[in-house]
Each structure stands twice: as C-alpha cells, then as structure tokens.
C-alpha cells in the first residue's frame, strides 16, 4: 500500500490462493467501452494478458496432461474468478468428484466412462482440504491420494502445497532478513515497521505502545484478527497485554500506516476511502509481475479494512508506461 507520504509498504504476503485478478480484467473490459478517451489519452499498460501469464505458469508446472482449475463449487465466493480464469486460460474447471487417482496419476473422469490425464492443477482450495487421506479426513472437497501423485512428480500443483507458511504474519517479519540472507540485497519495498513480541525488545515496545499499534493474529487472514490499539478501552488494552504475554508467538504488532485515500464513486458521489493494492506475481520459468493489480478500498469512511469478505470494494489498477 502507499502511505500518505508517498512511500510504498508491503503489508502482507499471500502465497496460498490469492484471488481477485479477474476483477480488474472485467473492470478494464467495461471501462474501455465506457470511457475510451481515458485510455486514448493516457499511456495505460494493457493488463489483459493475465490469462496468458497464468497459462504459461501452469504449463511450466505441467507434468504431462491437460490443465485444470480445481474449484470447491459455484457457492464459493470466488467462483466467478475460477470459471472466468478457466475460460480465459482454456483450462478445464473441475470439482473433486470429477477427478480420481489411478496408478499414481490424476485423471478427469469423462462422461463416456473414459479418463483424461491432468498434468497441472491450479487448485483454488486450501491445503488442508486438498487430500483427505493426507490432511483433514473430513474434507469433502479434496481428492484422495492427490499428494501421492504430487510427491511422485506426476502432477503439478499451483500454488505449491506448503506455500502458506510464507503467509504466516510471523514469517512476514523475517522476509527482509531472508532477502538479505539469500540474495544479499536490500529489499526495494519495505515492510511496515513490525514487531514480534516473541523477542524481548519487541515485546517491551509493544506493551509500552499498544494503544498506537495495530495487532494482528498471525494465523488469521481476510482482515480477521486485526485489532487497532486506539479502538480499545483501557480495560481491553490491559486484557490484550495479558494475552500477548501469554501467547507472544501468536501476534505481530505494526505501526499504523496512514493509507493514501483514493477517490471512490459511491452512491452517485465521489468520496475518499482508504485503499491498498494486491499485486500479482507469477513464477514459472521466470518471474513476472502483472502490470496491473487489484486495488481494494474500504467502504467505511473510518476503516482501514479493505477486504472484500468484510464489505470492501475494488477498482482496476492502471500502470502507466510514461
């Protein structure tokens, strides 16, 4: 996100199944029709290559077979995206009951009683539900033995199972250090100043400054488990301090960055709202950053929470080539 002083900050990483690439694509299609002049007069980089980038990424992980996108079904909040990306990447959109494992190969069951091998699976369900024989046995949306096929190198899974470890907000704290250690480079973009109460110095700072920090539960996502210290009463702050002391690894604390406000058209009028940017990075043979992204904004004038699961809206993101 961009702060009011113009500085950009990384707020979190999402390496599991981030959604939202399809919304700027749809928005771009519509706005090019509704406002061609805006595109004629500005050098806006065309973002409609996302499906091509995704297809290349899928092909890079393909172990021999068709491309498939695994969805939990039409009642999932991101189902539109699953079907839209399947349409535009020319992949088959599948649910678990259409798939089966035989001789350590993943197949799509066809209506003639035949089978078609799947070489790469872009799964849009969480790790723990992927394979009931390896993870949650009660999962009804997974594929039994999928992980065996994956371990044998007979199917590519995107994003790779286990990637979610990087989404842990406790790991986020270490990412700048990882960049320095593994690449011997300084990060180009900075994290928001972050404290991990697990460390003594950080614990002291957090307890002393709780009322001006934002506290995040490391295991939560989607805007849940986020508490702003200045929203808490004295009693609640005290209670929270005790919880942090008892479970120091469970939380991170960050300085509150004053997001840049962006103009939003809401109920016929232009208003200013907090917004952030979800950038999409696709790693295949090489790593590519999509020249667009999902700009998410808060609908509530007093809120920093932009997640769509909590009522946030979205805009297309224009990257200018000039």
């Amino acid at each position: 996100m961009q702060a009011k002083d113009g500085e950009w900050y990384i707020l979190e990483d999402n390496l599991r199944i981030p959604s939202g690439a399809s919304y700027p694509l749809i928005a771009r299609e519509l706005t090019r029709i509704a406002a061609p002049q805006a595109f004629r007069e500005n050098d806006i980089v065309d973002n409609r290559n996302y499906a091509k980038l995704l297809k290349e990424t899928m092909e890079n992980a393909n172990c021999g077979g068709i491309r498939a996108i695994l969805t939990p079904g039409r009642y999932n909040a991101a189902y539109f995206e699953h079907s839209y990306l399947a349409e535009h990447t020319g992949s088959v959109l599948v649910q678990n009951d259409e798939l089966f494992v035989e001789d350590n190969i993943l197949y799509h069951r066809t209506y003639s009683g035949g089978k078609t091998r799947i070489g790469v699976l872009y799964r849009r369900i969480a790790d723990e539900y992927l394979d009931p024989l390896n993870f949650l046995p009660e999962s009804l949306i997974g594929i039994p033995n999928l992980m065996e096929v994956y371990r044998s190198g007979n199917v590519g899974i995107i994003n790779a199972p286990g990637n979610g470890v990087a989404d842990d907000k406790g790991i986020y704290y270490f990412v700048p250090k990882m960049i320095k250690y593994y690449l011997d480079e300084e990060p180009i973009l900075h994290n928001a100043p972050t404290y991990l109460p697990f460390y003594e110095d950080d614990m002291k700072y957090v307890l002393d400054n709780l009322e001006k920090l934002v506290i995040k539960d490391v295991a939560e996502a989607g805007g849940y488990g986020v508490v702003f210290g200045n929203d808490l009463t004295k009693e609640k702050l005290e209670e929270f301090r005790r919880t942090i002391i008892a479970e120091p690894r469970r939380f991170i604390a960050q300085e509150v960055i004053d997001f840049l406000d962006l103009p939003i058209f809401d109920n016929g009028e232009t208003v200013m709202r907090k917004a952030d940017l979800r950038a999409f990075v696709l790693t295949g043979e090489i790593t590519k950053v999509w020249a667009s992204g999902l700009t998410r904004f808060s609908r509530n004038p007093d809120s920093f929470v932009v997640n769509s699961s909590q009522g946030g809206g979205f805009k297309d993101t224009w990257v200018l080539s000039r």
């Binding site: 068709i66 491309r67 020319g90 992949s91 088959v92 599948v94 649910q95 009951d97 259409e98 799509h108 069951r109 066809t110 209506y111 003639s112 078609t116």
Partner: peptide, 10 residues
C-alpha cells in the same frame, strides 16, 4: 481441452 465430465454433460 476436449474432456467432458458426466456432470458437465448433464
């Protein structure tokens, strides 16, 4: 990608 599941054919 010409593969049709029973569900989709229906």
């Amino acid at each position: 990608m010409g593969t049709i599941s029973l569900e989709h054919s229906d």
